Amino acid sequence: MDTDAPLLGEPLPVELMNTIWADRDGVHDSLRDRDGIKAWLHAVAARTDLMAPGDLDALAAADLDRLGHRLIGLRDALRRLAAEVTGDPRPAAVADRGLEAAVTALNRAAGDTPRWSALSWTPGGAPSRHPRAGGPAASAAVSAIAEDAVALFGGDTRDQLRACLAPACVLYFLKDHPRREWCSAGCGNRARSARHYQRHRGTPA
């Protein structure tokens, strides 16, 4: 089961924001149903030490619905905060929620499921760190993504956050290189083509 969300190698809070994406057919939501929620979580499971694919497969339908509701609420809050940080002018990109409500939703998501690190150390062996959670692993992973988002928006990294302004794109990315302007090479090509068309429109053949 593969997610249809674009995974660009961004931090997980940004990848979650980008479960809203667009193509020539319009704007899409990769978390629109149970299959989409499970597919996205499967796709990012390897990037967190709190959740394994088996944890997701063991979830009952009602638990998956609750998890999806939490993910969507967190995603929409993050997109509102990202729009604030980037001055995002794209109407289709922004969730309809106030700044204060988005901050409240993020903080609530970060604290929903307690998680901590535990140390294991047997005589003669090397010490190791193991994640522990006070609830289902997938739920703890959502709270961990929220905590990563608090670090993103509360630290200097937020200054690298950008809205991709290529035609019809609604994604966000971190500007990790001085020359990076777009979320992907495909968006860069579309933006250059659009600029070329605008420059030459109306020029006699």
Score class of each variant (00 low, 15 high):
W21H: 09
A168V: 04
E15V: 13
D65T: 15
L78F: 10
R179M: 12
G9T: 09
G54R: 08
H196K: 08
D4Q: 06
R97H: 07
R47W: 03
A105L: 12
F153M: 00
H177C: 08
P53Y: 06
C169W: 01
D49C: 09
L12N: 14
V27P: 07
N107A: 08
A166W: 01
S120G: 03
R158L: 05
R75Y: 04
A58K: 11
L50M: 06
G54V: 15
S184R: 12
S184L: 07
R75L: 06
R190E: 03
E147K: 14
L16M: 09
P13I: 12
D57K: 02
Q160T: 14
P6A: 13
S30D: 01
L64C: 11
R195Y: 01
V44F: 09
A105N: 05
E84P: 08
W40V: 11
P167M: 05
S30R: 10
A102F: 06
T113P: 00
D112I: 10
T203W: 11
C183H: 09
A149G: 11
C169K: 01
E100Q: 07
G68L: 11
P136R: 15
G188S: 03
G98Q: 07
S128E: 07
L99Y: 15
V27N: 02
G54H: 08
A163P: 02
A168H: 11
T3P: 04
D55R: 07
R32Y: 07
W121E: 00
K38S: 09
P6Y: 08
V27L: 13
L99M: 14
P11Y: 04
R199Q: 04
L161A: 02
R24Y: 13
G73K: 06
V85K: 12
T122L: 12
R190V: 02
A109I: 14
A110P: 08
A194Y: 03
N189R: 14
P204A: 14
P131C: 02
L165W: 00
A105S: 10
A163R: 01
S193I: 01
A138Y: 13
C169F: 01
A60W: 12
A62R: 11
E181H: 00
W182R: 02
P11C: 07
A149E: 05
L7N: 04
L12F: 10
L16D: 11
T104G: 13
P123R: 10
T122S: 14
C183K: 11
D65G: 13
G36T: 02
G124T: 07
G154T: 14
R158S: 15
R75T: 00
A22K: 01
A144I: 05
A163E: 05
R195Q: 03
T3D: 01
I20D: 10
A95D: 07
H28G: 05
E147T: 14
R195S: 05
L67I: 06
E181F: 06
T86M: 13
A140K: 05
D88F: 00
L165T: 00
R129H: 00
P114Y: 06
E181K: 10
F153P: 10
R179T: 15
R32H: 08
R162Y: 06
F173G: 02
L64T: 14
G188N: 00
P114L: 10
L119C: 00
S117I: 11
A140E: 10
N189Y: 01
G154L: 08
T3E: 10
D23G: 03
A168L: 02
G111L: 15
C164N: 05
L7M: 04
G111M: 15
S143Q: 12
A137G: 06
D35K: 10
R66H: 12
G54S: 05
H130A: 08
R129D: 04
